[in-house]
């Protein structure tokens, strides 16, 4: 948009990289301290990089609770992702391929559901789960995560679904397929890229979630964020282990941010933004 003036551009590049360095400083702190030994961390020389080791990683992974929590996070994340993408794909198909009374109201309601604060639901969910025996189970957490992922993924999928021409589906229906056969055999393969985007966002939402996991689980179905938080609760200062565990949990987030660049804006703004 602007004519290239080399000097100005060089200056802006420097400023940009400086801002980026400040912005990434806390993340770098987490990653680096995962490799520093606790004695070095507590010595009061925060930027001394001697005696780097994998000891904290070994220690944190040897904690039975933490290892299990990583597995639980993975199971809950994948379970909720599968359920929410399937349910949301059907819902988005219903909204994008049919014209029915209340269609707009329904679509916008899903958008509002997406923005409900979890703290407003978690107390009631706690009482319900206790009554139903769902507390402290991976299944219960999968259901809870699916509830906020479904409205989210529906809106993420809508533009993908609308952009697919319906002539394939019409042809299949002329050939005698039922609506559901058309959906599963013809339509879903066509929107596979959209489903991948929806799945990745659903997974990251679940992976990063803390409040539901904190309130709705105890010992059995503790997820990694809750386990990480309980590491700092103990009296012994084990920042190395906290940082090592945190870095492990960051791996999917890094991959996500770089791989999903194109879709990040749509992901956080729900799409359909006017203007």
């Amino acid at each position: 948009m602007r004519r290239n003036r080399p000097a100005v551009n060089a200056l802006i590049a420097c400023a940009a990289f400086l801002v980026l360095a400040i912005e990434l400083f806390p993340i770098a702190i987490t990653v680096v301290n995962g490799f520093r030994r606790d004695v070095v961390i507590l010595s009061g020389k925060p930027f001394e990089l001697s005696q780097l080791s994998l000891r904290s990683y070994k220690l944190v992974l040897e904690r039975p609770g933490f290892q299990k929590s990583l597995v639980t996070s993975l199971v809950v994340g994948l379970g909720s992702t599968t359920a929410s993408v399937l349910i949301a794909a059907m819902g988005a198909y219903g909204i994008s391929r049919f014209r029915f009374k209340g269609r707009n109201i329904l679509a916008y309601s899903f958008l509002i559901f997406r923005m409900l604060p979890q703290i407003s639901l978690v107390v009631a969910l706690y009482l319900m789960y206790k009554f139903l025996g769902l507390r402290d189970s991976a299944g219960g957490l999968i259901i809870a995560y699916t509830s906020f992922n479904v409205p989210y993924v529906i809106w993420l999928l809508l533009p993908f679904f609308t952009s697919v021409d319906s002539s394939y589906e019409e042809a299949a229906m002329v050939d005698g397929c039922t609506r559901f056969q058309v959906f599963f055999k013809v339509f879903l393969p066509l929107v596979a890229p959209g489903l991948v985007v929806g799945a990745v966002f659903a997974f990251i939402n679940s992976w990063n979630e803390f409040l539901y996991a904190l309130i709705l689980t105890g010992i059995n179905a503790k997820t990694a964020p809750v386990a990480l938080n309980s590491l700092i609760g103990s009296d012994i200062l084990t920042w190395g282990q906290v940082c090592a565990g945190g870095t492990l949990m960051l791996v999917p987030v890094f991959i996500f941010t770089v791989a999903m660049q194109k879709f990040l804006i749509r992901g956080i703004s729900a799409g359909g933004v006017k203007g």
Partner: peptide, 18 residues
């Protein structure tokens, strides 16, 4: 620049505490 936005909120709190 977008990494912090997707940084786990829990970990962000812990990192700042540290």
């Amino acid at each position: 620049l977008l990494l912090p936005v997707f940084f786990l909120p829990v970990l962000s709190g812990i990192t700042w505490r540290f």
